[in-house]
Structures are given as C-alpha cells and as structure tokens.
Design a protein around this nucleic acid. Structure first.
Lengths: 174, 174
DNA sequence: GTGAGTCAGTAGCATGATGAAACTTACTAT
DNA sequence: ATAGTAAGTTTCATCATGCTACTGACTCAC
C-alpha cells in the first residue's frame, strides 16, 4: 500500500507534513540550517544510507525547500542549500528543539538557541507579531480562514474552545 | 530493515521526532487539539485505517503525549486526551500551521489562529520570552548546551553562523 | 428477546517504504 | 597506475502502511 497522501487535506499542517513529514526529512533540514550542504556531509553526520539520502534530498528539492546546485563542473559536484522557503522553516525547528529540550533531554540541553552577544539562552515562545501577545489558549483560538470548506467550518463551530482540556459535552447531547 | 531510531542522537529535534515523527502522529495530535478524543472521531476525521490508529495512539500514549482513559465501564470505552506534555506541543503545531499557510495554501488559509475577542488573524512569530526579540539570524545563534558532547561542540564551532547562506570556507582549507 | 447500531478495537494480507552493502562514474592527487 | 574523493545507483531483504473484514461487549428499538 502506498502511503496515504495528506495533500488533498485543506489543512496547512497536513500539507506541510506531506513535504517534510517523512522519516529523515526534518533532520536533513536541521543539518542544512547548521551549515551542511554536501551529500557526503549529510551522510556522515546523520548515518543515513546513501539511497535514502538521495530520495529525501530529491523530495526536499521538489518541495522547494532545498536547491540543488552544481558547485563544480569537472567532475560534476552538487550541493544542497536552503531556499527562502527552506529558511522559513526555521521557526518550526526552533519550537521543536525547545519542545525536545523541555521533555526529552533528561541530561540537560545539548544544543540551544542563545543570544549572539551575551550568550544567554533564549526561551522560545510563539507570539502574535503585531501585539506581541503569546498565542495561548483563552486569548487566541482557531478559526476558519477565507478558503475554509464547509467541513472545516463545521468542525470548528462544534468546539470553539479548541485547546480546552476535557470540557466534553457531546456525551450528553449525543 | 527496522526504521532507524533517532533516540540515541543527542539532538532534541531528533528525540522529538522519535516520538511524534511517524506518519499520522502529528495529525492525530492536531485533532486532539481541536477537541477530538475518541477512537471513532479520529478515525472518521482522518480517514486512517483502524489498525494504524491503534498503533499511533498507543505510541503517543507511550510517549506521554496522550492519556488513555476509560470514560465508560460497561461496555469499556476509552478516550484519548492530551497530557500536559501533549498540550505543550501546541507551539510546534502553531509554527507548522503558519508555515503551511504561507507556502502550501495557494487558495488562501483554510484555518488560522485569531484573536478570540476581535477575530483578527494572528501572525505567529517565534521570540525570546524575556526580551521579546524575534529569534532570527544575526541576533540569536545555536550553541552547545550544558549536556553537549564533543561532537556537537565541534560541529557548532565549525560554523557559528548556523543559518548563514553559502559562506563556505571548507573548500579552500580542506 | 431478536436485530440493528455503536464503539473500540484485531486479524490477515498486499504493497511500498526503508535500509545495508556493494557497486558505479568521473574525476584528482601522488 | 594506484588510491582516494564525491555523489550517487542498484539490488535485495524486511518492516511499516493501508485496506477490508471481522470481533466483543454492550445499548436501544420494537
């Protein structure tokens, strides 16, 4: 069975995962952010099999996250560099890193984001750019966007308090 | 071949992906944030095969992201609710949603985060909680944490400008 | 008290994704 | 001419994914 595609789903999370959700893809992007560009560099650093690396790099190029470019003509040699879209993935990696450090690093953080000048560790939080307010539960909610379909609208209407713990009501009225 | 484990890697991103990086897992969490709790709800909404759903729910429970709890005794019925750790995954979903909306929603956003009062769409950015400054390239950099191993330290030392485009130097001195 | 429906799964099997190891191509360096 | 490097491709085993059908334990309508 082919892996089911998320691409038809109207959800931006599903669409993103369709491009970067495969095994290895995100780690390749992580390494690209750390400055790796060459096939061999990725291969050594990740311990990935070369055939897998070929497939993942190709799909990331196809998704517009990486650009494959020849840096040497004879012999032909290629490197993979982040595109603008790829660089925009930074915030996702940032939150994922922070999440991992909070929950899966019992020995303490092994890598973190720090102030470039002071060296002070940063504490990444997601906020609204304009107001600067953190995007947390009661202040901000999920809502259908301009391109939402009926199903999305209905699903969101069914429970506005999208991040709420178990304030279940359906049991009674179903 | 068994899927290679990321768990031994000292990287918080790799560790997180080990728990939530499988196909479907993140979409299940997304639905949990939208208020779904029951097996059947997930199954219908995602269009996932029931055996896959069973496996993914179990692994998310094992990872401490969801809690399986009995809400009915006769017959035994279970629901899956986000744990504290699971709720902490919110920021990752938020950035992923924003990223997907920016790059893979040509028809426009179908779902977004809005101000609960005004309905104004939020623009999610990642900032340092204390200073409020956005976590972007020249101001903030990656650095080894207290639990970093030698390899991590060296890799980061090799290129401090972690997000920099192709300012390659290794060609010349290698 | 029989049949239909609901909920939360299991079981069986086809197919495709993942992975290890070996091999290839096209050069450069000694 | 031999070894080494960089960027892959090929082959093949095995594991994960996915579809369909089925089960178990009940509840509710008639």
């Amino acid at each position: 069975m082919q892996r089911k595609s998320f691409d038809e789903m109207p959800c931006p999370i599903a669409r993103s995962l369709e491009r970067v959700g495969e095994w290895w893809s995100i780690l390749i992007l992580r390494d690209a952010f750390r400055g790796l560009t060459r096939f061999e560099e990725f291969q050594k650093n990740l311990g990935i099999a070369p055939n897998m690396l070929t497939r993942r790099l190709s799909s990331l190029v196809e998704a517009g996250m990486l650009e494959r470019r020849r840096y040497n003509d004879r012999p032909p040699r290629y490197e993979y560099v982040l595109t603008e879209r790829g660089r925009d993935f930074r915030s996702v990696l940032g939150t994922l890193m922070a999440f991992g450090n909070r929950h899966f690093a019992p020995e303490g953080a092994s890598i973190m984001i720090v102030d470039a000048v002071t060296g002070e560790p940063a504490e990444p939080v997601l906020v609204d750019r304009r107001s600067g307010r953190p995007l947390v539960e009661p202040d901000f909610v999920l809502a259908p966007g301009p391109a939402a379909n009926a199903a999305t609208v209905e699903q969101l209407a069914n429970r506005k308090a999208d991040m709420a713990p178990p304030a279940r009501t359906k049991d009674s009225d179903a």
